[in-house]
């Protein structure tokens, strides 16, 4: 699905990612954990194509294509989705209008016809139920005045509507109460399939009580320093990160 090789990224002359390699195969769910400032969100933003991040070395192949050559909108059309850590409010733009524009942009790029308004509404009603939101929600301006939980559920709503192949969830679990967290986790779990992949970036182990990752990676100072399975996440939860830091220091 995606293959990241030896990726170096700088922001305003400061090197944030220092040689990341990661391969995610179809159907897999990878978790990336790490402290604040370890480079987690940088990785998410680089994958989605935000332009203030400068790739100084390395490559990213997305289903065989060179991802770094693609505009953000073309990455989305090719099936990449980022659930934002901080979803942006767009006053005056109706959520439904936005969702429809997004769905049609993706369809158009595939040479398909624009979705009919009635079909779209019935599809959205279906999806709204999956994230436990009522219909009034889609008539509000995008993320404008939404609570933290509503914003994150709106991200998941967009994900299940756009049906991407690779979903990157950037701290989608942070700041959620337990009910909202369960809804988000269920949204993701219901959406999992053998041809869809996920990169879940998180600060906390908590969401992993509701999901089954295939791999867990620890990001530290711009590098993946340790990879493992669910057991690794549990160990971090119990012991924190310092033992890994010590391991890294010893190896160096």
């Amino acid at each position: 699905m995606i293959k990241i090789e030896n990726l170096y990224v700088s922001v305003e002359e400061k090197e944030i990612l220092k040689g990341i390699s990661l391969e995610v195969k179809p159907g897999e769910l990878h978790v990336i954990m790490g402290r604040n400032g370890s480079g987690k969100s940088t990785l998410a933003n680089v994958l989605a194509g935000k332009d203030k991040y400068k790739v100084t070395n390395g490559s990213i192949k997305f289903n065989g294509e060179n991802l770094l050559d693609m505009l953000p909108e073309n990455r989305a059309r090719a099936g990449l989705f980022l659930s934002f850590q901080y979803p942006v409010a767009i006053p005056g733009v109706n959520n439904m209008y936005f969702l429809k524009a997004a769905v049609n942009a993706v369809r158009k790029s595939r040479g398909e016809e624009e979705i009919d308004a009635v079909d779209f509404l019935s599809m959205i009603r279906e999806k709204l139920k999956m994230v436990d939101l009522d219909e009034s929600f889609i008539h509000r301006p995008v993320n404008d005045g939404f609570s933290g939980g509503e914003k994150k559920r709106n991200e998941i709503l967009q994900m299940i509507t756009l049906e991407p192949k690779l979903s990157i969830l950037d701290e989608t679990d942070s700041g959620l109460d337990i009910d909202a967290l369960k809804i988000v986790a269920k949204g993701v779990n219901d959406f999992r399939s053998p041809d869809r992949s996920f990169i879940l970036i998180t600060h906390y182990q908590r969401i992993l009580n509701y999901m089954k990752p295939d791999f867990v990676h620890i990001l530290m100072n711009g590098k993946i320093v340790k990879s493992g399975t669910m057991e690794l996440a549990k160990e971090v939860e119990k012991k924190g990160y310092s033992w890994i830091e010590e391991e890294v220091a010893e190896a160096a």
Binding site: L71, P72, E73, F81, V93, F98, A105, V106, S109, L162
Partner: peptide
């Protein structure tokens, strides 16, 4: 906001228009 819209598949030109209309 522009990047947010682009990341949903909407091209830059359309995204800008959408925002100005908004």
């Amino acid at each position: 906001a522009l990047f947010y819209l682009q990341s949903r598949g909407i091209n830059k030109q359309d995204a800008m228009e959408l925002m100005v209309i908004g």
